[in-house]
């Protein structure tokens, strides 16, 4: 058994959240610069220029990149030989989240669904953290983190298609969602797609796909080809940065697949804005 201290997890999460709030990750910044170089529309180019400058100001002033500092989402791989000492792993992640959001001057964005009352003084500052646990072999603890904003979450959708819809059905569905979303989710976007699985597995996979490094290549040749086709098709929509018209609508499309029921073809599309704040912690 490898022991990991509760306080060490809290501190790692807190530091990661504070840093991520003000520093656009390298992969996202590279994609932003690439979009700026490739953009044909002068209006969209100006938007991208502002976003690159914004990343610079946020980093140097240690100020949040965006006022929507998101809900805190985690995918956690827990090695079977890991033992957390001094408290539960879940409590440590939540405590680290609250401390990070408070000390980083990030926004408390969780509320009650009906009264819309902010939960900062009742449940905790920007709590709960949204955590997906997975048990794996070994003695490592891997925590993937992303701050997920509301604007891009609001345009995300899921469905269960008849199996006959097939590849074309999936492609058309993704195109329809990005097209209808237009300027609202703050393009250029990362588009996470979950295909197959049960209904909820498709949704969780589409979320997890957003945590993948931008610019990385899918190891599955079929999915790789679909991703490339979708990037091309989505950029043809003409939406451009912040929807003002342009050639650079997406940074990338990331697809994850799962085996599914013989009767079903679940498909989920989770959209991420240009401010793709994500990080990985290994303990």
């Amino acid at each position: 058994m490898r022991e990991i201290k509760y306080e060490d997890i809290v501190k790692s999460i807190k530091d990661c959240i504070i840093f991520s709030g003000a520093n656009l990750p390298k992969d996202a910044l590279e994609k932003m610069n690439e979009a700026y170089e490739n953009e044909k529309s002068p209006v969209a180019k100006e938007v991208l220029k502002q976003l690159i400058k914004n990343a610079d100001i946020a980093s140097s002033e240690e100020k949040p990149l965006c006022q929507d500092t998101g809900l805190a989402v985690f995918f956690v791989k827990v090695g079977e030989d890991v033992k957390v000492i001094g408290g539960t792993l879940k409590a440590a992640i939540n405590e680290g989240t609250e401390k990070g959001y408070i000390d980083g001057y990030l926004r408390a964005s969780t509320c009650e669904w009906d009264t819309r009352a902010n939960l900062k003084d009742t449940l905790g500052y920007n709590l709960p953290a949204f955590i997906h646990f997975d048990l794996v072999k070994g003695d490592e603890l891997t925590i993937e983190y992303a701050a997920k904003g509301g604007g891009s979450e609001n345009v995300s959708r899921a469905t269960v298609m008849p199996p006959a819809a097939g590849r074309k059905g999936v492609i058309d569905y993704v195109k329809k969602i990005v097209s209808n979303a237009g300027p609202n989710p703050c393009p250029p976007l990362t588009v996470g797609v979950g295909i197959g699985g049960t209904f909820e597995k498709a949704v969780i996979s589409s979320k997890h796909a957003l945590f993948r490094k931008l610019g990385s290549v899918n190891e599955d040749p079929t999915l790789k080809e679909m991703e490339e086709e979708l990037v091309e098709e989505l950029n043809k929509l003409g939406i451009g940065a912040m929807g003002m018209g342009g050639t650079q609508t997406v940074f990338g499309v990331h697809i994850e697949k799962n085996p599914c029921h013989i009767a079903s073809l679940p498909v989920s599309v989770n959209v991420q804005c240009h401010s793709s704040r994500h990080a990985v912690i290994k303990l």
């Binding site: 914004n54 100001i57 946020a58 949040p64 990149l65 965006c66 300027p183 912040m242």
Partner: peptide, 13 residues
Amino acid sequence: FGATGGAGALLAR
């Protein structure tokens, strides 16, 4: 009017 979404640090200036 549109302001640039996700440029919160720049706009705050």
